[in-house]
C-alpha cells in the first residue's frame, strides 16, 4: 500500500517534470536556431544516411558533405529504388539518373542572386506560430533538442525538429498537418562528423560511358525576363508576403510563365500563371503529392496554378484570388 502510494507520487512528479520540459520559446530564438542549423548544414564535414518519407513512400539516401575553402561539395546517393545520384559543387548540381541513363549538369550563371532569404518586411513569426522546446531526445545516437513549431491557424503546416545539441545539424524533421499528423519526415539514421573529408568521396564512380550527358548549355535561360506587375493575389492567409516575382520559361513547354512566390517565413507557395496553349493539359481543381498541395483553375485565356507545402485550403485561396489589374 505504502509502496503503491510512493509509486503514484513518483509517477505524478514525473508527469509534472515532463509537462514542464515543454517550454515556450520565442520566434527570435527559433529563427536563430534555424539560422545555425542552416549554417551547420553548410559548413560541416559529415557523412550519413537519412530516410525520407513522404506520402506512402519511403527512401533511404546517403549523404556526404564537405566544406572547404572552395565552398560546399555534396553527394547524395539514393539507396533505394534506382541508384540516383546528385553531386553538388556549390551551385553546380549534377543529377545522375540511371533509369534514363542520363546525366544532367546544371550550371548556375555566375553573378545571379543567392537562394532566397526571408523577405525583410516580414513580421514576427510568432504572430502565426507557437514555438516550444520539448527537451532532449536521441536521434542517430546523438543528443538532439526537440523543437515544435505549431501553426496558430489551419493555413500552414507545423514542424517538429530535432537539432543536434553539439553541432546544430538538423537530425530529424517532421512536417505536420493542422491536425498534427506527420505528412513528411526526414531522419538521419547515422551520421559521422569529420575534421575534413577526402575529395574522392565526393566523386561519382560512374564512368559516364553508358550514360547520355545532358549539359545545360543554354546560357540564356537564366536571363531575366520582364514581369507583368498587374498580376496580383488579392486574398492571402495572414502573414503571407510576396518574396519573388519572376518570369521564366519552363523547359517542359518552353513558354513563359509568370511566377509569384509567397511566404510567411516558414511556409512557401508558388503561383504560376501561364497562357493557355493548344494541346496543353493543365490542372483544374485540387491535387496533392505527399505534403505538397496544388490547385489549378482557368482564368480567361490564362491558367493559374498554386503549388506549395501548405494545406490544400491555402493553395486554393491563393489560386482563386489571382487577378489582373489592367
Amino acid at each position: 500500500m505504502r509502496r503503491g502510494f510512493l509509486i503514484t507520487v513518483l509517477l505524478f512528479s514525473l508527469s509534472i517534470s515532463l509537462t514542464a520540459s515543454a517550454e515556450q520559446i520565442d520566434s527570435d530564438t527559433v529563427r536563430e536556431w534555424l539560422g545555425r542549423v542552416t549554417a551547420a548544414g553548410k559548413n560541416l564535414n559529415y557523412e550519413g544516411t537519412f530516410v525520407y518519407r513522404h506520402g506512402n513512400e519511403m527512401e533511404a539516401v546517403k549523404i556526404i558533405h564537405k566544406a572547404d575553402d572552395k565552398g560546399e561539395h555534396e553527394r547524395m546517393i539514393s539507396l533505394t529504388g534506382s541508384a540516383r545520384e546528385i553531386i553538388r559543387n556549390n551551385e553546380v548540381v549534377t543529377c545522375i539518373l540511371p533509369d534514363s541513363k542520363s546525366v544532367v549538369v546544371d550550371n548556375k550563371t555566375p553573378g545571379t542572386q543567392q537562394l532566397p532569404s526571408f523577405p525583410s518586411e516580414l513580421g514576427q513569426l510568432d504572430a502565426y506560430y507557437d514555438f516550444s522546446f520539448e527537451g532532449y531526445e536521441r536521434v542517430a545516437s546523438r543528443e538532439a533538442r526537440r523543437v515544435v513549431i505549431k501553426p496558430q491557424d489551419r493555413f500552414r503546416y507545423g514542424y517538429r525538429l530535432w537539432i543536434d545539441d553539439a553541432f546544430e545539424l538538423l537530425l530529424r524533421s517532421e512536417l505536420l498537418d493542422p491536425d498534427g499528423n506527420a505528412v513528411e519526415q526526414i531522419m538521419f539514421t547515422d551520421i559521422k562528423l569529420y575534421e575534413s573529408l577526402d575529395s574522392d568521396l565526393l566523386k561519382s564512380n560512374l564512368s559516364g560511358r553508358e550514360f547520355t550527358w545532358v549539359t545545360d548549355d543554354e546560357t540564356n535561360h537564366d536571363k531575366p525576363m520582364p514581369v507583368d506587375p498587374h498580376w496580383q493575389v488579392t486574398n492571402k492567409p495572414k502573414g503571407f508576403m510576396l518574396a519573388h516575382h519572376n518570369m521564366h520559361k519552363l523547359p517542359e513547354t518552353n513558354r513563359p510563365v509568370e511566377h509569384l512566390v509567397y511566404t510567411d517565413g516558414l511556409a512557401w507557395v508558388s503561383v504560376y500563371i501561364e497562357k493557355i496553349a493548344k494541346n496543353s493539359d493543365s490542372l483544374q481543381g485540387a491535387t496533392s503529392m505527399g505534403a505538397v498541395n496544388a490547385y489549378g483553375r482557368v482564368m480567361g485565356e490564362y491558367h493559374v496554378t498554386a503549388v506549395g507545402e501548405v494545406p490544400a485550403m491555402t493553395v486554393e485561396i491563393l489560386s482563386s484570388s489571382v487577378i489582373h489589374t489592367k
Partner: peptide, 15 residues
C-alpha cells in the same frame, strides 16, 4: 525558390 526547413537535406525531395 523556397527554403523549407530541411536543414542538411534540401535536395532530399529532388532525389
Amino acid at each position: 525558390y523556397s527554403t523549407p526547413v530541411r536543414g542538411a537535406m534540401p535536395f532530399a525531395q529532388i532525389v
